[in-house]
Amino acid sequence: MKKLLSISMFILLLTFAVACNTSDEESSNSDNSDGEWEPDGGITFMASYAPGGGHDTMLRTMSSVLSNEGIIDNSINVINKPGGSAAVGLGHAASQEGADDYIFSVTSSYLTTPLQGNVDHSFEDFTPIARLGEDPYIVLVNSESGISNFKEFEEFIKEGNATFGGTSTGGGSHLLALQIEEAFGANIEYVPFEGDGEVVTALLGGHIDVIADNIHASKEYIENGDMIPIAVSTQERLEEYPEVPTLIESGYDIEWTLFRGIYGPPNMPEEARAWYEEKMKELSENEKWQSEYLDKYSIKQGFMNGSEFESYLTELNSTYEEHLRTLGIIE
């Protein structure tokens, strides 16, 4: 019996030791024999949205391609810190200051949430690594709504009674909703949800009228006929849905896509930043990545390195700021 007791104590101590080890990693990095920097131990990928959403899918596919294709040998752990239009995630990332074993996915909310003044951090505080692609929005209705084409959609919106679901306040889908509201000259009630899953469910159940989503989150429902695609927010029609018109050709000058990229915590060591940037470049050229992520989720290839990405964001940030100001979200 004493043996069993000591075994169970041993397991507990082991858990403790493993836990300590993980937290100590930051301080115990070693250069390998070539002098090239490499992370020592596991890496954390953080998604600021719930599992099943765009960030989560990207990071999970990324981690599987990186491991299976031998681009990164370290074990990768994907974590989710959903809430507050990525504010929770940004707070978590900020708390990792100086860490070299932690990167996170960024999209429009990474600009809009700080712009609204809800967090003390702005994108300039974090370490740019790479932009990986651009994700178009698709406007969808429930197939039982009686709306089946753009003309009927236009009439419906102009009645001024539509509820429009999206993820988080001031995020990409919210800004698109506001642009539609402005362009159509009709009132739209925007209902914020916590993640893509909830938004899709709300539309499927017929609880809201319209959603704007990234293609992957609703693909399944478009194919089985539960949802009808009404319009896309890109410059040109999408290859996958050639019959779906763009908002621009329908007479509303709205082009709105979501960038998808990777950032590191504040003051990430430069050697680590360069290492991740290199790995991301390798990833974006990988065929598996193109077929399992970009093509599968209808995301346009658009690699940018860290400094390009940062200047792209600086420009975009002032566009967003302008948008939010005109729409009265910020003063």
Partner: peptide, 19 residues
Amino acid sequence: GMDFISGFGRYDFVPELYD
């Protein structure tokens, strides 16, 4: 913690409390 509908934090005096 963070209220996702308004995007404002409540009593989140330290970053660990954002969540």
